[in-house]
Simulated assay, not measured.
Amino acid sequence: MKRIHSPTLDLNLIKVFDALLESRSVSRAADALGVSQSAVSHALGRLRTLVGDPLFVRTGGRMEPTPRAQRLAEPLRELLLGAARALSVEESFDPLLEDRSFSICTSDAVQAVLLTGLLRDLSDQSVEAGRVSISLRSLDPDAMLNGLDDGTIDLVIGYLPEVRRWHDREYLYTDNHVCLFNPDLVPLTAPISLEDYTRYPHLMPSLRGGLSSFIDDDLSALGTQRRVAASTTQFLAIPMMLKHTAMITTLPTRTAEFCAKAVGLAISPLPFPSEDYDVSMAWHRRNTGSPSHGWLRQRVQKEAQGLR
């Protein structure tokens, strides 16, 4: 008990340490904590004295952690997460009795193929999700993980090869890619050949609005290339565009099936090998023990079972 109540042990110092570790900047850490830069600098000085290590060293405009700071990172973050869970007032959750809103960040394509069942339940007040509301946000690869950290996003869904060490992730389903086109304007019959695939211009889905993707790397390895005439961040705008343009697009299989049925387009397997990929959901670990957040994750998993 003496060590727990030691005057040198200030839990606010751990919050400063965590903010510096995440931001690598005194100014950004101060903004995240809502304090002045001098307060962060003072706290870092106290931490250095307490630990006997510089902890963070300025390198090229960034505060890089020392090996000692890297070793402290995980146990100190677990301490903060444990405190947050212990102090949480939420002990149970009944979606029929309690008002709760969630923010889910995912692509429009995943919204269409995975979340329509959940949205259907939200429109029926007699079912389990009676008093829940959901805000669906576009998937922003550069901002989504920050949204989990600052609490503006509850759940991220998509292809998530990397998350931060304080995020939890859970597998939902596996998908792959196929071609999609209008057979009235692109007179091909499935399965199309590699020559056909590269002969027509392409409309490319891209979350960042780029004009190349892994498809171009695969084609380059085969000694060929395609012409990307346009790209769009809105996956579900693609079928309407293809309805009126002689282009080919490459989409996740389940999204392509959804689009083909809705607009009357043709699907073909890719004329070259392409690896499957996993769709998963990620959330901040502070929400792992939350009953309401657990309800949301279970509900998403229920929808994903039909896609496996």
Rank of each mutant, 00 (worst) to 15 (best):
L115M: 08
T116A: 15
G117D: 05
L118K: 03
L118V: 05
R120M: 10
L122M: 03
L122Y: 00
S123P: 00
S123G: 04
S123W: 10
D124P: 02
D124I: 04
D124E: 06
Q125E: 14
Q125R: 15
S126W: 10
E128H: 14
E128N: 12
E128G: 10
A129V: 02
G130R: 15
R131Y: 09
R131G: 02
S133K: 10
I134P: 01
I134A: 00
I134V: 07
S135Q: 14
L136C: 03
L136Q: 12
L136A: 09
R137K: 12
L139I: 00
L139F: 11
P141V: 00
D142E: 12
D142M: 05
D142V: 00
M144V: 09
N146K: 15
G147V: 03
G147E: 06
D150W: 13
D150Y: 10
D150E: 13
D150N: 12
G151Q: 13
G151Y: 13
I153Q: 04
I153E: 04
D154L: 08
L155S: 08
L155M: 13
I157W: 12
G158F: 03
G158H: 04
G158C: 04
E162F: 06
E162Y: 13
E162K: 08
V163Q: 07
R164S: 01
R164E: 07
R164P: 00
R165K: 11
R165F: 12
R165T: 04
W166I: 08
W166F: 06
H167I: 02
H167A: 02
D168Q: 15
D168T: 11
E170S: 05
Y171P: 08
D175V: 04
D175M: 07
N176E: 11
N176H: 13
V178E: 13
C179R: 08
C179S: 11
L180A: 00
F181Q: 09
P183Q: 05
P183E: 07
P183M: 09
D184M: 11
V186G: 01
V186M: 02
P187K: 06
L188R: 05
L188K: 08
L188G: 05
A190Y: 02
A190G: 02
P191W: 07
P191K: 06
S193M: 08
S193C: 10
L194V: 01
D196T: 01
D196Y: 05
Y197F: 14
R199W: 10
P201L: 05
H202T: 01
L203M: 12
M204T: 06
P205V: 14
S206L: 11
L207D: 03
R208Y: 09
G209D: 07
